[in-house]
Computed example of a mutant assay.
Amino acid sequence: MTEHAEHRIETAHVRRSPRYAIFFMLGAILGILAALILTFAFDGTQQKSPSTQVLYSTPQVFGFLCLVCIPIGMAVLGAVALILDRRLSRRQHEVRVDHERVEIDPGDSAV
């Protein structure tokens, strides 16, 4: 069996980056928490809406507030993640990487 190995030394740039999915998920959780606080802080379920003359229940008010607060929370923490990414991009390091490529000839088979 014949092996051919090839070594190359390359340089690479390494930097830390925030995980955007975690920031968006935390923003959604923060939005749900804000909607929950707003639902019970301002009890508007005891009076009719002035424009529609409908009495909304507490779960309906919570749902309406979630429709507003979740995207706002995701946008705010997404912006925080972008700012962190810009700040951390300044601290990138250059490292040397040993790149090895090994090829085995398929014609040579050891039994």
Score class of each variant (00 low, 15 high):
Thr2Lys: 15
Ala5Gln: 11
Glu6Asp: 11
Glu10Pro: 05
Thr11Lys: 15
Ala12Phe: 07
His13Trp: 12
Val14Gln: 02
Arg15Phe: 06
Ser17Asp: 02
Pro18Trp: 05
Ala21Trp: 00
Ile22Trp: 05
Phe23Val: 00
Phe23Pro: 02
Phe23Ile: 02
Leu26His: 07
Gly27Leu: 01
Ile29Phe: 11
Ile29Gln: 04
Leu30Pro: 00
Ile32Thr: 13
Ala35Phe: 04
Leu38Gln: 10
Gly44Gln: 11
Gly44Tyr: 11
Ser49Ala: 09
Gln53Asn: 15
Val54Ile: 15
Val54Trp: 06
Val54Arg: 13
Tyr56Gly: 00
Ser57Asn: 09
Phe62Gly: 05
Phe62Cys: 04
Phe64Lys: 07
Leu67Val: 06
Val68Ile: 15
Cys69Val: 01
Pro71Thr: 02
Gly73Ile: 01
Ala75Phe: 06
Gly78Gln: 01
Ala79Leu: 15
Ala81Asp: 02
Ala81Leu: 01
Leu82His: 11
Leu82Met: 12
Ile83Arg: 13
Leu84Lys: 01
Arg86His: 08
Arg90Val: 05
Gln92Trp: 07
Glu94Asp: 12
Val97Thr: 12
Asp98His: 13
His99Asp: 07
Glu100Trp: 11
Arg101Trp: 06
Ile104Cys: 08
Asp105Trp: 06
Gly107Arg: 15
Gly107Ala: 15
Val111Leu: 13
